[in-house]
Protein backbone atom coordinates (compact mmCIF):
# COMPACT_ATOMS: atom_id res chain seq x y z
CA UNK A 1 0.00 0.00 0.00
CA UNK A 2 1.34 3.37 -0.97
CA UNK A 3 2.07 5.68 1.96
CA UNK A 4 0.19 8.98 1.75
CA UNK A 5 2.49 12.00 1.62
CA UNK A 6 1.88 14.49 4.37
CA UNK A 7 1.96 18.17 3.52
CA UNK A 8 4.55 19.98 5.60
CA UNK A 9 2.67 23.19 6.44
CA UNK A 10 5.68 24.72 8.20
CA UNK A 11 7.98 24.26 5.20
CA UNK A 12 5.27 25.40 2.80
CA UNK A 13 4.71 28.60 4.81
CA UNK A 14 8.36 29.56 4.46
CA UNK A 15 8.43 28.66 0.79
CA UNK A 16 5.25 30.47 -0.07
CA UNK A 17 6.67 34.02 -0.33
CA UNK A 18 9.27 33.05 -2.91
CA UNK A 19 6.72 30.98 -4.84
CA UNK A 20 4.31 33.93 -4.88
CA UNK A 21 7.11 36.32 -5.82
CA UNK A 22 8.11 34.14 -8.77
CA UNK A 23 4.51 33.73 -9.87
CA UNK A 24 3.77 37.45 -9.68
CA UNK A 25 6.97 38.90 -11.04
CA UNK A 26 8.33 36.20 -13.33
CA UNK A 27 5.75 33.68 -14.49
CA UNK A 28 2.98 36.29 -14.76
CA UNK A 29 4.95 38.77 -16.90
CA UNK A 30 6.32 35.98 -19.11
CA UNK A 31 2.82 34.65 -19.76
CA UNK A 32 1.61 38.20 -20.42
CA UNK A 33 4.48 38.74 -22.86
CA UNK A 34 3.64 35.53 -24.71
CA UNK A 35 0.00 36.59 -24.90
CA UNK A 36 0.70 40.08 -26.26
CA UNK A 37 3.00 38.68 -28.93
CA UNK A 38 -0.24 37.58 -30.64
CA UNK A 39 -1.92 40.99 -30.27
CA UNK A 40 -1.98 43.53 -33.08
CA UNK A 41 -1.40 47.28 -33.03
CA UNK A 42 -4.06 49.51 -34.55
CA UNK A 43 -3.71 53.30 -34.46
CA UNK A 44 -0.85 53.03 -32.01
CA UNK A 45 -2.99 51.04 -29.60
CA UNK A 46 -2.59 47.34 -28.79
CA UNK A 47 -5.67 45.38 -29.69
CA UNK A 48 -6.48 41.93 -28.34
CA UNK A 49 -6.18 39.28 -31.03
CA UNK A 50 -4.71 35.88 -31.70
CA UNK A 51 -2.68 36.33 -34.85
CA UNK A 52 0.72 35.04 -35.84
CA UNK A 53 1.52 38.12 -37.91
CA UNK A 54 4.11 39.46 -35.46
CA UNK A 55 5.95 36.15 -35.31
CA UNK A 56 5.87 35.83 -39.06
CA UNK A 57 7.01 39.41 -39.58
CA UNK A 58 9.94 39.30 -37.15
CA UNK A 59 11.22 35.79 -37.84
CA UNK A 60 11.26 36.29 -41.60
CA UNK A 61 13.28 39.51 -41.44
CA UNK A 62 16.99 39.23 -42.19
CA UNK A 63 17.84 42.03 -39.75
CA UNK A 64 16.29 40.09 -36.87
CA UNK A 65 18.56 37.11 -37.48
CA UNK A 66 21.57 39.37 -38.06
CA UNK A 67 20.95 40.94 -34.66
CA UNK A 68 20.30 37.55 -33.10
CA UNK A 69 23.55 35.96 -34.23
CA UNK A 70 25.55 39.09 -33.52
CA UNK A 71 24.17 39.32 -29.97
CA UNK A 72 24.87 35.64 -29.38
CA UNK A 73 28.41 36.04 -30.70
CA UNK A 74 29.38 39.23 -28.88
CA UNK A 75 27.87 38.08 -25.58
CA UNK A 76 29.76 34.75 -25.83
CA UNK A 77 32.98 36.56 -26.74
CA UNK A 78 32.56 38.96 -23.85
CA UNK A 79 31.90 36.11 -21.38
CA UNK A 80 34.98 34.24 -22.64
CA UNK A 81 37.19 37.34 -22.35
CA UNK A 82 35.83 38.09 -18.87
CA UNK A 83 36.62 34.54 -17.71
CA UNK A 84 40.15 34.61 -19.16
CA UNK A 85 41.01 38.11 -17.93
CA UNK A 86 39.57 37.40 -14.49
CA UNK A 87 41.50 34.16 -14.00
CA UNK A 88 44.99 35.47 -13.04
CA UNK A 89 43.49 37.90 -10.52
CA UNK A 90 41.22 35.21 -9.09
CA UNK A 91 44.11 32.75 -8.93
CA UNK A 92 46.24 35.24 -6.99
CA UNK A 93 43.38 36.05 -4.64
CA UNK A 94 42.51 32.41 -4.07
CA UNK A 95 45.99 30.97 -3.64
CA UNK A 96 48.43 33.78 -2.95
CA UNK A 97 46.49 36.35 -0.92
CA UNK A 98 45.83 36.05 2.79
CA UNK A 99 42.30 35.63 4.09
CA UNK A 100 42.16 39.35 5.03
CA UNK A 101 43.51 40.50 1.66
CA UNK A 102 40.96 38.33 -0.12
CA UNK A 103 38.09 39.78 1.92
CA UNK A 104 39.23 43.31 1.13
CA UNK A 105 39.64 42.47 -2.54
CA UNK A 106 36.12 41.03 -2.76
CA UNK A 107 34.78 44.09 -0.95
CA UNK A 108 36.56 46.41 -3.41
CA UNK A 109 35.23 44.37 -6.33
CA UNK A 110 31.70 44.83 -5.04
CA UNK A 111 32.07 48.62 -4.74
CA UNK A 112 31.58 49.33 -8.49
CA UNK A 113 28.09 47.86 -8.19
CA UNK A 114 27.21 50.72 -5.78
CA UNK A 115 27.39 53.13 -8.73
CA UNK A 116 24.92 53.25 -11.60
CA UNK A 117 26.02 51.12 -14.54
CA UNK A 118 24.99 53.93 -16.90
CA UNK A 119 27.30 56.38 -15.11
CA UNK A 120 30.17 53.87 -15.24
CA UNK A 121 29.53 53.41 -18.95
CA UNK A 122 29.52 57.14 -19.67
CA UNK A 123 32.79 57.54 -17.79
CA UNK A 124 34.42 55.41 -20.51
CA UNK A 125 33.77 58.27 -22.96
CA UNK A 126 36.54 60.24 -21.25
CA UNK A 127 38.93 57.31 -21.48
CA UNK A 128 38.12 55.83 -24.89
CA UNK A 129 37.45 58.93 -27.01
CA UNK A 130 39.94 59.73 -29.75
CA UNK A 131 40.93 62.75 -27.72
CA UNK A 132 40.62 60.74 -24.52
CA UNK A 133 43.00 59.55 -21.82
CA UNK A 134 43.96 56.20 -23.37
CA UNK A 135 44.82 57.67 -26.76
CA UNK A 136 46.77 60.45 -25.06
CA UNK A 137 48.89 57.83 -23.25
CA UNK A 138 49.34 55.81 -26.44
CA UNK A 139 50.31 59.03 -28.21
CA UNK A 140 53.33 59.37 -25.90
CA UNK A 141 54.75 56.12 -27.29
CA UNK A 142 53.93 57.09 -30.86
CA UNK A 143 50.79 54.99 -31.25
CA UNK A 144 47.29 55.90 -32.32
CA UNK A 145 44.96 57.62 -32.10
CA UNK A 146 42.73 54.56 -32.28
CA UNK A 147 38.99 54.61 -32.73
CA UNK A 148 37.58 52.80 -29.71
CA UNK A 149 34.17 54.34 -29.13
CA UNK A 150 31.29 53.23 -31.37
CA UNK A 151 33.05 49.97 -32.21
CA UNK A 152 32.77 46.31 -31.20
CA UNK A 153 35.72 47.00 -28.90
CA UNK A 154 33.70 49.70 -27.14
CA UNK A 155 30.80 47.26 -26.71
CA UNK A 156 33.10 44.62 -25.20
CA UNK A 157 34.62 47.18 -22.80
CA UNK A 158 31.10 48.08 -21.68
CA UNK A 159 30.16 44.44 -21.16
CA UNK A 160 33.35 43.83 -19.17
CA UNK A 161 32.55 46.82 -16.96
CA UNK A 162 29.42 44.95 -16.03
CA UNK A 163 30.73 41.40 -15.84
CA UNK A 164 34.43 41.38 -14.95
CA UNK A 165 34.10 42.14 -11.21
CA UNK A 166 31.46 39.43 -10.97
CA UNK A 167 33.67 36.92 -12.80
CA UNK A 168 36.60 37.62 -10.45
CA UNK A 169 34.42 37.28 -7.36
CA UNK A 170 32.84 33.98 -8.45
CA UNK A 171 36.14 32.49 -9.65
CA UNK A 172 37.88 33.54 -6.42
CA UNK A 173 35.22 32.03 -4.19
CA UNK A 174 35.25 28.83 -6.23
CA UNK A 175 39.02 28.38 -6.21
CA UNK A 176 39.40 29.43 -2.57
CA UNK A 177 37.28 26.42 -1.64
CA UNK A 178 39.50 23.90 -3.40
CA UNK A 179 41.36 21.57 -1.08
CA UNK A 180 44.91 22.95 -1.33
CA UNK A 181 46.46 19.59 -0.49
CA UNK A 182 45.27 18.28 -3.86
CA UNK A 183 47.26 20.99 -5.63
CA UNK A 184 50.29 20.34 -3.44
CA UNK A 185 50.00 16.60 -4.18
CA UNK A 186 49.95 17.29 -7.93
CA UNK A 187 53.01 19.50 -7.65
CA UNK A 188 54.82 16.92 -5.45
CA UNK A 189 54.09 14.25 -8.03
CA UNK A 190 55.83 16.37 -10.68
CA UNK A 191 52.88 18.10 -12.32
CA UNK A 192 53.95 21.40 -13.90
CA UNK A 193 52.11 24.65 -12.93
CA UNK A 194 50.06 24.96 -16.14
CA UNK A 195 49.26 21.25 -16.10
CA UNK A 196 48.15 21.61 -12.46
CA UNK A 197 45.72 24.35 -13.46
CA UNK A 198 44.42 22.34 -16.40
CA UNK A 199 44.21 18.92 -14.72
CA UNK A 200 43.47 19.78 -11.10
CA UNK A 201 42.24 23.34 -10.54
CA UNK A 202 39.89 23.66 -13.50
CA UNK A 203 38.16 20.28 -13.07
CA UNK A 204 37.65 21.02 -9.38
CA UNK A 205 36.31 24.52 -10.19
CA UNK A 206 34.13 23.41 -13.08
CA UNK A 207 30.76 24.14 -11.50
CA UNK A 208 31.72 27.58 -10.22
CA UNK A 209 33.41 28.52 -13.48
CA UNK A 210 30.47 27.49 -15.62
CA UNK A 211 28.09 29.42 -13.38
CA UNK A 212 30.38 32.49 -13.56
CA UNK A 213 30.57 32.28 -17.35
CA UNK A 214 26.82 31.82 -17.53
CA UNK A 215 26.22 34.96 -15.46
CA UNK A 216 28.62 36.94 -17.65
CA UNK A 217 26.82 35.72 -20.77
CA UNK A 218 23.34 36.43 -19.42
CA UNK A 219 24.26 39.97 -18.36
CA UNK A 220 25.90 40.77 -21.69
CA UNK A 221 23.17 39.14 -23.80
CA UNK A 222 20.46 41.31 -22.27
CA UNK A 223 22.46 44.52 -21.94
CA UNK A 224 21.29 47.59 -23.81
CA UNK A 225 23.63 50.25 -22.44
CA UNK A 226 27.05 49.06 -23.68
CA UNK A 227 26.16 48.34 -27.32
CA UNK A 228 24.09 51.53 -27.55
CA UNK A 229 26.39 54.04 -25.87
CA UNK A 230 29.85 52.53 -26.41
CA UNK A 231 29.13 50.48 -29.52
CA UNK A 232 27.19 53.21 -31.34
CA UNK A 233 24.38 50.72 -32.11
CA UNK A 234 26.43 49.10 -34.79
CA UNK A 235 25.53 46.45 -35.20
CA UNK A 236 22.31 46.58 -33.20
CA UNK A 237 21.92 43.87 -30.58
CA UNK A 238 18.55 42.34 -29.71
CA UNK A 239 17.87 44.78 -26.83
CA UNK A 240 18.44 47.67 -29.27
CA UNK A 241 16.12 45.98 -31.76
CA UNK A 242 13.45 45.83 -29.03
CA UNK A 243 13.81 49.57 -28.51
CA UNK A 244 13.69 50.27 -32.27
CA UNK A 245 10.59 48.14 -32.62
CA UNK A 246 8.72 49.94 -29.87
CA UNK A 247 9.90 53.37 -30.97
CA UNK A 248 8.49 53.17 -34.45
CA UNK A 249 4.82 52.36 -34.56
CA UNK A 250 4.71 51.28 -30.92
CA UNK A 251 4.99 47.64 -31.94
CA UNK A 252 5.07 46.15 -28.46
CA UNK A 253 3.78 42.78 -29.75
CA UNK A 254 6.73 42.53 -32.15
CA UNK A 255 9.09 43.60 -29.37
CA UNK A 256 7.54 40.77 -27.31
CA UNK A 257 8.49 38.32 -30.05
CA UNK A 258 12.12 39.47 -29.85
CA UNK A 259 12.03 39.25 -26.05
CA UNK A 260 10.57 35.72 -26.12
CA UNK A 261 13.28 34.61 -28.53
CA UNK A 262 15.87 36.06 -26.17
CA UNK A 263 14.37 34.28 -23.19
CA UNK A 264 14.13 30.99 -25.06
CA UNK A 265 17.80 31.29 -25.99
CA UNK A 266 18.81 32.10 -22.43
CA UNK A 267 16.77 29.21 -21.03
CA UNK A 268 18.38 26.78 -23.47
CA UNK A 269 21.88 27.99 -22.77
CA UNK A 270 21.39 28.20 -19.01
CA UNK A 271 19.86 24.71 -18.88
CA UNK A 272 22.70 23.23 -20.94
CA UNK A 273 25.28 25.03 -18.80
CA UNK A 274 23.77 23.77 -15.54
CA UNK A 275 23.65 20.21 -16.86
CA UNK A 276 27.31 20.49 -17.85
CA UNK A 277 28.23 22.09 -14.54
CA UNK A 278 26.74 19.33 -12.41
CA UNK A 279 27.47 16.39 -14.71
CA UNK A 280 29.68 13.89 -12.96
CA UNK A 281 32.84 12.85 -14.77
CA UNK A 282 32.71 9.38 -16.39
CA UNK A 283 33.71 6.56 -14.11
CA UNK A 284 32.95 8.34 -10.84
CA UNK A 285 30.33 7.22 -8.39
CA UNK A 286 30.65 10.06 -5.96
Amino acid sequence: MKAQRKIDVYALTWRLPIILWQLLFFVGPVVFMIVISFFVVKNYRMTEAFEFVNWERMLTRGYFWDSYWYTLFIASLSATIAMIVAFPASWALAFRASETQRRWAVFLLIIPFFTSYLVRTFSWYVILAESGVLNAILGYVGLGPFKMLNTHFGTIIGYLTLTLPLAVILQTITMANIDKTLIEAARNLGCKPLATIWRVVLPLSKTGFIVAALFCFILAFGDFVAPFYLGGSQEPTLPILILDTTKSGQQWPRAAVVAIMMMATLFTIAFTAIVLAYRKPKGTNA
Binding site: A129, S131, N150, F228, G231, G232, S233, Q234
Partner: peptide, 19 residues
Protein backbone atom coordinates in the same frame (compact mmCIF):
# COMPACT_ATOMS: atom_id res chain seq x y z
CA UNK B 1 30.99 55.93 -43.86
CA UNK B 2 28.80 55.55 -40.79
CA UNK B 3 30.33 55.51 -37.33
CA UNK B 4 27.22 55.11 -35.25
CA UNK B 5 23.55 55.68 -34.58
CA UNK B 6 22.74 57.97 -31.69
CA UNK B 7 19.99 59.39 -29.54
CA UNK B 8 20.00 63.06 -28.52
CA UNK B 9 22.69 62.61 -25.86
CA UNK B 10 24.88 60.45 -28.07
CA UNK B 11 24.60 62.87 -30.99
CA UNK B 12 25.49 65.74 -28.71
CA UNK B 13 28.51 63.92 -27.24
CA UNK B 14 29.67 62.53 -30.59
CA UNK B 15 29.86 65.99 -32.15
CA UNK B 16 31.27 67.61 -29.04
CA UNK B 17 34.18 65.23 -28.51
CA UNK B 18 34.98 64.95 -32.22
CA UNK B 19 34.11 61.26 -32.52
Amino acid sequence: QVGGFFDYGGTFNGLKNGE
